[in-house]
Write a protein that binds this DNA or RNA. Sequence first.
DNA 1: CAGACCATGTGGTCTGACCACAATAACACG
DNA 2: CGTGTTATTGTGGTCAGACCACATGGTCTG
Lengths: 252, 252
Amino acid sequence: MTDASVAPLDTARAWEVVLQHIEGELISGALRPGDHLPAERALAAELRVGRSSVREAIRVLEVLGLIRTQSGSGPQSGAIIIARPSGGLAALVRLQVAAHGFAVRDVVKTRLVLESAVVTELAENPAAELSAARELLDAMEAVPAPDAPAASRDEFLTLDQAFHLALAAASGNEVMAAMMGGLRDSVEAYVRVGASFLPSWETTSARLKIEHRGILAAIEGGDAELARTRIREHIERYHAETDVSGIHAPTP
Amino acid sequence: MTDASVAPLDTARAWEVVLQHIEGELISGALRPGDHLPAERALAAELRVGRSSVREAIRVLEVLGLIRTQSGSGPQSGAIIIARPSGGLAALVRLQVAAHGFAVRDVVKTRLVLESAVVTELAENPAAELSAARELLDAMEAVPAPDAPAASRDEFLTLDQAFHLALAAASGNEVMAAMMGGLRDSVEAYVRVGASFLPSWETTSARLKIEHRGILAAIEGGDAELARTRIREHIERYHAETDVSGIHAPTP
DNA sequence: CAGACCATGTGGTCTGACCACAATAACACG
DNA sequence: CGTGTTATTGTGGTCAGACCACATGGTCTG
């Protein structure tokens, strides 16, 4: 048994050792998406660190969206390398916005830049697979919006986000897709609050549907310039309408 | 004392409770950059969770670049909210690349999109403060590059990155600056490896200097289109030259 | 008054012990 | 012989307590 508490020997904290070990195995290809990480206890023994240190590294990987953990037994249990990235960026951006107070304006601006690039890419690539986006638009039409109970508003907003993400996914650039998702999530709260203050949700949602169709049409028509213009107006108008800059924190 | 092991009561894991608690205090403004988090033991007692759960949350925040931890005593010890965000995105992207979640190509592409937006913004805004970028270019000229010992190469690359970040900072959009920095950092390793394989570093660095001057000149001349073209060629050419896509893993 | 010296508080780590859960193996019973 | 039930095993999730190394600040001594 190793003597207890041998922390600052190598300057690298124990959990960093674990993290670097796993990263190394990812780079070398010893670990690939779908693979299981060794059990926490086994990893701890292998690397000669405490299980708590292993857990701290595992936690980081989980939040970063690299692995998924599941207790219990069987093939689905343990820590599994996730193939498709998700969540991590959203959590990061959300927390950075919360902590450092990134201006919502800057977040929206950045998102606009990315979305413009996405639609440009799609418009210039006729082979783009847009059926997913199309289906989401159909689903949006189907949302019951009689007089907009909060539930249907939320459902619509969810579909709205899914539409934008579908476009990003269609572009094939997962980095951009993940970033867009993260940026959108981080201003999500503001959007939902703002949406509840709209004079007429029915009017707004109808306009949003039209704008979405317009964006998709521009892409399918191969008109990148038009697609850029429309996505810009779509985002800018929406955030102008749902502006809640005077609400933020209840500064008395 | 609370009964030991009361995990799946509320469906939220203990460390998530801690994370959400801290996030809430960030959003509400109770915690601001520069503030100290409560001591781990105190936080654990307050939230009725184990210290290890608190540590897992702290670890996540640290990797995400939100806090800095320092053992010992005094004003500099403990977990402190970091003022300027850094590192987090780079770590995330780097690990995602390692896990094959992101392609380096996509990372570079995304960076290109952001940088294009930055130079466009700068070119269209005559009031932009570019003195920092200018000074960095002067510093680059001064780097002794006789026959490029590795040290001067590294120094040059550092200044190179600083130049790009200075442009982003000048645009005033912190989100974009943070993302650009993170993306650049995440491919840093690839860049440095590639740079060591260049046939003639002297030639390359001379070209890079010229390109940098050209970008800055286009911005100062208010020619957004030209600035975009130049930044694109700058980045694309560089990554074409330092392409190490065939190196990666020694797939036998 | 200055320097040495402990007391204190902090993160960092390890160990050992539970719990809840899911899959599987072993078993008993009709 | 088949089938349903019951241990067994292995996993993450959590907690509690114990050290260590370190930095600080007050206290004590020469």
